[in-house]
Every structure is written in C-alpha cells, then in structure tokens.
Design a binder for these strands. Structure first.
Lengths: 209, 209, 209, 209
DNA sequence: GATGAATGAGTATTCATTCAT
DNA sequence: TATGAATGAATACTCATTCAT
C-alpha cells in the first residue's frame, strides 16, 4: 500500500466520520436548524475542518442522500440478479429491499426531498449533482427492469415500466413521509409498517393481470 | 350591509391578498429562502402590515396549508354525499377530486410536509394548529368512509378503512412529491398526470376483491 | 362659561385621562417596554388620538414628571407658608411632604431620572422643558428657603442652603430608588418607610448646630 | 506560561476591550439608544464577535455593573481591615472609598439602576445575576459591619446597622444621580463634590451620639 | 492537515408615528 | 375630533464561511 493510498484511505475515513455526525444532527434538527458548529461538535472536530472535506453545508447534506442512493442501488441490483426468480418473486424481494432501505435511514427519505429546492441545487458542485442524478437514474432503471420483465412476460398489466417504477417508489416514499408527518394527527408507531404492508399488498394485487 | 360587516370583508380581502403573494413567493424560493420583505413586496404592502394579519412567518405559511385542506375537505365530503353512487363510483370521484386538489395548488403538498417540523409547531398558535388537525382528521375520515362502505359491502378487500385511506393519500402525495422532485432527473411535465393515472389505476385494481 | 372655555376644559379632561392611563402602563412596564398601543388601550382610545394631545411618547412621559413636580411644589410652598413654625418645625413638615410625594406616585421618582438622558431631551418641546426646569428650580428654591431660614437663625449648621436642599432631595430619592432596586437583594416591603425614617432622622440630627 | 494560559489571557483582554468600548457607548447614548453595532465599531470588532464574549446586550451591560461592584467591594473590605481605626475613622475612610468608586466610573451608578427592571433580569444568565447579588450583599454587609461596630461601642446612635448602611449608600447614589440629572437645571461640575461633602458631613454628624 | 476566532451579511419582528376617512 | 390601518425604519442576533496560525 503506497503512502498516497494510505492518505486517500485516511481522508475517506474522515469523510465518513463527518457524515455519521451530520446524519445524526440533521436527523434531530432538520437541515435549517442544524448548524455546522453542531455537526463539528458531534464529529469532535472544528468547524473549519468540515470545509476541508465538504464544499459547504448543502453539499455535506447532499452527500448523505448520495449514501442512501448507493445503498438503494446495491439492494435493487441484487434483486435483479436473482436469476431463478420470476417477476413476482422479484417484486416481493423489492418490497423487502424497500423495508431495508427505510431501516437504513428512516429520516433521510425526508432529506431527499430537500434536494428538489432549486436554491439548494445552486450550491451543489456539478460533479456531486451528476452523481446523484446517475444513481437515481440507475436505481429507478433497475426497478423499472423488474416491472419490464413482468409486463413482457404478461404477468403484470400493460403499463410503461418506468411509470410503474415511479409509482412504486412514490408509494413507498409517500407512505413513509405521510405517516412521519401524521404525528400531528396520530401517534402510533407500528402503524407505519402496517400501512406499508397494506400499500404494497394492494400494489402487487393491482399490478397482476 | 353594516359597517362592521364591510370592515370584516375588507380585512378578509387583505388576508387573501397576502396569502396569494405568500404562495407565489414560497413556491419560488421555499420557506427558508423566502423573506417577509419579499412577500410584502409581492403583495405591494409594507412588511409591518403582514404582521397585522399573521402572527409570524410560520403562521402565514401554515395558513396556506389550511387553505388547501379546506378545499380538500369540501371536495371529499361532496364525493361522500353522492347518494346514488356505490363505493367504486365514489372512488373514481375521489380520484377526480385529488386531481382538482393538485390543480388547486401543486406546490402546497410540499408545504404541508413542512408542518411536521417540531420547530415549526412551536411558533404556531394552538388555535391554528387545532384547525389544521381538525381538517386533516375530517378529510381523512371522510376518505376512510368511502373505503369503509366498500369493505362492508364486500366490494373492496378486507383491510382497515383508515389504513386504506392513508395509503390512498400517501400514494397521491408521494407521486406528486416524487415527480416534483424528479425534475433533477427528468423534465417532462405531463408525465405527472400519467403517473397519477397509473398509480390510481393500480390502486383501484388492487383494492377490488 | 363660553363655548371656547368648555372646549378647553374638555381637552384638559382628555389629557388627564391619557396621563392616568400612561402612568399605569409606564409604571408596570417601564418606558421602553410600554407601547403607545398599550397606553391607548388602557385609556380606551385609539393610538392616533394620543398624538392629538401629546407630541410624542417622550413628551407624554415627561408630562407625568411635570405632574409630580407640580404636586411637590404645592406641598413645599405650603410648608414655607407656615407662618408660626420655625425652621425645625418646617423641616418636620417637609419630611411629611416628602412622604406624601412618595405616596402620590412611588414609581415616578424613578421616571424623573429618565429625563436626564440627552437623547430624551432632544425630543421634548422647549416649552415643556422650560416648564420642568422652572418647577424644579422653584421646588428646590422653596426647599432651600427653609434651610436658609435655619442657617440664618443659627439653628442649622453653616452650609449653603442650596447644597442642603440638594442633599435633602438626594437623600430622599436615593433611598426610594435604592430600596426599589434592592428587590434584587432583599424583598421586605415596609423596610422602605423604616429606612426613610432613619435617613431623615440622621439628617435632622446632623443638621442641627 | 502554557499555551492554555496565554489563550485565557488573550480572551480576557478581548472581554476588557469590548467592555471599555461598551462603557463609552452606553455612557453617551444610554442603554436603549446604544446599538450593538455602535459598540462593535467602537471596539473595532464585528458585531458577531461581541456575542462570542457576551451572551447578549443585557449581559454585556450588566457586566459593566459587575465591574464597579468588584471595585467597590475591594475598597470597602479594605476599610474594614484597618485594624487600628475606630468606627469614626473607618467611616471617614468609607467616605473616601465612595469618592474613589465615583471616580472609577461616574456613570455606572446610573447603570446599576437598570438592573432593577424585571425585563432586564429575564435576559441575564442566572450565574451572572448570582454574582451581582453576591457582590451587592457582600459590599452592603461590609459597610454595615462598620456601622455595627460604631453602634455597639456606643459611638453611633442606636439604629439597625443594615438600615444605616442602606441609608449611607442611598445618600451617596442619590447625590450622584440627582446631580447628574440636575444638568437640566444647572451645569456646574465641581458642585457634585461639594454636595457629597455636605451630605457626608451631615450624615456623620447625625450619626454620632 | 487542523484549528477556532473572527467575520459580516442577512432577516424576522416591533412599534412610534402618520393620515385618509 | 377621533380613528386604526398602514407604514417602514431600526436592530439584536445567528451562523456559514474564511484564514492566520
């Protein structure tokens, strides 16, 4: 291992350290109430150091989204690689993957919607934005692939696979967001899992020919 | 018309004038980037005047959400009052209502998620919060009522009506939010309508016994 | 009574109504925290009306000081007019007068120190300032007159009467202010009267030859 | 000198720098008219820096009062430590101490009355308030000790030492405040010293049995 | 690389005062 | 006279970002 490589590795470790702290702080306070000072303290670093690893606050935040997208893509591609499964089995696996993604970071789903703000986008480096776009596209593409198979083999109803993928993802994130926000109205906790079950069940039934 | 009544009417007109301006500004810039100064300018009023009609920025923002909830409730209750329609027809009408709600204010769905921030709630008057909670509850209840009829008459699958209502609403808001945010990836506009169609279609199919 | 005179009388009544309200509000909140809106509400008038009777907030405030000065002057001159009393009896009466002045408005003593701010003076009409100056001078002069008699008749120690008058007044307002502010340290109430007694007692003893 | 210690020293220097500037600005404009911007400019620092050293405007202001209380306590305790002096000599020394306190900061006496506002107290950290209370109590206690000795040895009249201490302090601050405010009426400067002399002289005479 | 003190632009909110009715 | 809605200047405080050490 060259000295160059060791440095690179060390640098990546620091980035991770900061991101872990940032995730915790953003989760607790939300993007706007969380300060760089908070995150620095959580990471046991100084505010200045954060800027050695991330261009600015927005980019640090976006990096967290990138992380879940990476996780999502791995899980979804894994589903697609199940050679012996048919579309229906894959759809089941996909649902399981979604549960895992939610467990991976229940709050970052909310965060991902932060990216839509045009004001936010202005502060992201084109490079990072490209990466996010790419991962989104790939993940959605991979999900769409499952539906494509189902549609082509005549098992699923005849809709455009991309629209199906979008619907599937929207259902998932919609339930998560809606029930998270419904704490205003209601306060039961396990209810999220139940509603996801109901949602995915209906989706699967509605999808079959 | 008494002088009292005229004043009341004038006052309401001002509130609306401000809300229209606020909606425009918040839509363009998002809650945090929008300044009260911006809104005042848009409304052709002075900043101080805004505070004669709304306690603070958060409450002005929340009032916008209240507005769509009011519209939503009216539309949904109207659906429930269709005496000659069975659950399936009502579900179709409900879908139409959702389209209208979206047309009424495409961005306010996003705004409604702002309400979940505990920091936000602190600055809302209990009165306004109560109203929002009540309207949410009523609307959801009214939607659930449709599903309840369907389940009881054995037309819909046997799930808890409230969970069905939540799923339905989550699907709707999920699609809206997701496709709004997907401008990062894609930029076609009519695609939203199409995806909503796909989503509702699958939902209806999956719901039937 | 002419119509002119009746109007004048009515106007004066309004001024008094406002000043009574202002005194109450300023006493509770202090000059800076009290708003013209507060005072208007207390007076059951609209904010605009206040400005028909007082040039601005500072002037309304100063008018209250004027009021106590008027009361003070009357009481002190009355003491001086006691034809049969010698300086010692008059000093006793003066002490009684001070107690009355304190009862008349315990908090306005504090307020009178507000007048010293040069920023405040800028906003007062020269006319009002002149009146205040005049009353202060007259009251102090009248107090000094008592001491002058005592000094000249050889009953009091040989100091400049004006300095004695200033010392007397300073002792009085010092005790009031200090014990008012001492609520930080201590909290007994009757203690003010006691300390005033001690102070005046020492003063009288020290004054005698 | 360790690096830790040097930093501490540097930090204290900054606090002093700010307090010196604040004293100047508050003296000229009074608490309310003085802006943090003014003080920052006077200190040749940015507004934000002020908040690194003082929690808020009120606390910066109160810190000035703390300073004179510290000075007062040292001077008064020093008087009490004069082993060879009797109560009368100590009272003379106390009077000298008061002159010094006045010279130390002629305007801060006024400032100390600002502390009485309950609105002010709300914004002070409990810690700072405790310190102020403690110093006040100690100083007054130390002054009372002098009078106690005099009363017990039968040299002073038989009054409660605490009441005597309060009267003494009230006389002092009353004269300072009154003559400061009398600039409205009069404008001679040396007159303050003279009146203090008269006041203390009468007080000492009245105190003796 | 790491620090953390300093920066200073940015903003919600208040409130004395005005003026059309 | 009286009103009270509207004004808009004024300001404490925050916090992302920088840079000398």
């Amino acid at each position: 291992m060259g000295i160059q490589e060791r440095k690179e590795r060390e640098k990546e470790r620091r980035r991770q350290q900061i991101m872990v702290a940032a995730k915790r702080v953003f989760s607790n306070k939300g993007f706007n109430k969380a300060t760089m000072e908070d995150i620095a303290q959580e990471a046991e670093l100084s505010p200045g150091t954060l800027y050695l690893y991330f261009k600015n606050k927005e980019e640090l935040y976006a990096s967290l989204s990138l992380r879940i997208l990476q996780y999502l893509l791995i899980r979804v591609e894994h589903v697609n690689e199940e050679k012996d499964s048919g579309p229906e089995e894959k759809l089941k696996s996909l649902v399981d993957a979604m549960y895992d993604v939610y467990e991976f970071d229940p709050l970052i789903i909310i965060n991902m919607f932060h990216l839509q703000s045009s004001e936010t986008l202005k502060n992201l480096s084109p490079q990072l934005m490209e990466e996010i776009k790419l991962l989104s596209r790939k993940s959605l593409g991979s999900i769409a692939q499952i539906f494509k198979e189902g549609v082509e083999t005549g098992i699923f109803i005849d809709k455009h696979p991309v629209a199906l993928a979008d619907t599937f993802w929207a259902l998932f994130s919609g339930v998560v967001l809606w029930l998270t926000s419904k704490k205003i109205i209601d306060e039961r906790k396990d209810y999220l899992k139940q509603t996801l079950d109901v949602g995915f069940d209906i989706f699967r039934r509605g999808l079959k020919k």
